[in-house]
Simulated scan of single mutants.
Amino acid sequence: MAGLTAAAVAAVCFLAYQASANVPADLKEKPRTPATAAPSISPSGGPKQPTADPLAVPANSGTGERVVYALADRRVWLVDAKGKATRTFPVMPSTVDPAPGTYGVTSRSGSVRGSDGVQIEHVVRFATAQDVAIGFSAAVDGSMPSPDPTKKTGGVRMKRADGDALWMFAVIGAKVVVVA
């Protein structure tokens, strides 16, 4: 069954590539220049200012291979030794945040029950704050609900596929950089 699924996915990807490579010139999207770009309106009603690439690795996150966790963006980047993001994904922060700074992965657990009672997997712990262990994890049921604000929790939740990628990337001692 898995072989058939893999073959079907490969066939769809190949056909999509062929289709995109053979789009007639008159149907291809033409790059917009700033003078012809459609105006954008901000929530306040004024023109929206162009922003940097929201998926770019934060500039103040150090160098080398690392996991970057941006508190305000609720996002994690897996960054290779050359400083290039190999993956980025949204996360649901816990109720207790680590202070911005550089940490190392201190422990990992394949499967445990989280402090919120949810069964979790691929737990990667890297900090302690307010006597709470802080770490990345994915709920086995795939959920990413907002944590109960009345409880002190340290689980930074992500989707299971993202949890798998982080688990493979962030071994004991791996650098984790937390930015505001």
Rank of each mutant, 00 (worst) to 15 (best):
N60R: 06
N60S: 13
N60F: 07
N60L: 04
N60Q: 13
S61E: 07
S61W: 01
G62L: 08
T63N: 12
G64M: 11
G64S: 11
E65L: 12
R66P: 04
R66I: 06
R66A: 06
V67Q: 09
V67A: 11
V68W: 00
V68K: 03
V68S: 02
V68M: 06
Y69N: 01
A70Y: 05
A70G: 05
A70K: 01
A70H: 02
L71G: 01
L71W: 04
A72K: 05
A72C: 02
A72Y: 03
A72H: 01
D73N: 06
D73Q: 04
R75V: 05
R75T: 06
V76P: 02
V76M: 15
W77Q: 05
W77M: 09
L78D: 09
L78M: 15
V79K: 04
V79G: 05
V79T: 08
V79D: 04
V79S: 09
D80C: 15
D80L: 11
D80W: 05
A81S: 15
A81R: 09
K82P: 04
G83E: 09
G83V: 12
K84W: 07
K84F: 13
A85E: 13
A85F: 13
T86E: 15
R87I: 11
R87W: 15
R87T: 14
R87Y: 15
T88L: 10
T88N: 15
T88C: 14
F89P: 07
F89S: 13
P90R: 15
P90K: 15
V91G: 02
M92S: 14
M92I: 13
M92K: 09
P93Q: 10
S94A: 14
S94T: 03
S94F: 02
T95V: 07
T95N: 03
V96R: 03
V96E: 00
V96L: 06
D97T: 00
D97G: 03
D97Q: 05
D97M: 01
D97K: 01
P98V: 02
P98T: 06
P98C: 11
A99T: 10
A99D: 11
P100N: 03
G101K: 06
G101A: 12
G101C: 10
T102R: 02
T102L: 07
Y103W: 07
Y103H: 01
G104W: 04
G104A: 11
G104S: 13
V105L: 09
T106W: 05
T106A: 12
T106H: 02
T106Q: 11
S107N: 12
S107W: 01
S107C: 09
S107V: 13
R108P: 05
R108F: 09
R108Q: 12
S109M: 05
S109N: 13
G110S: 12
G110D: 08
S111D: 11
S111P: 01
S111W: 00
S111K: 00
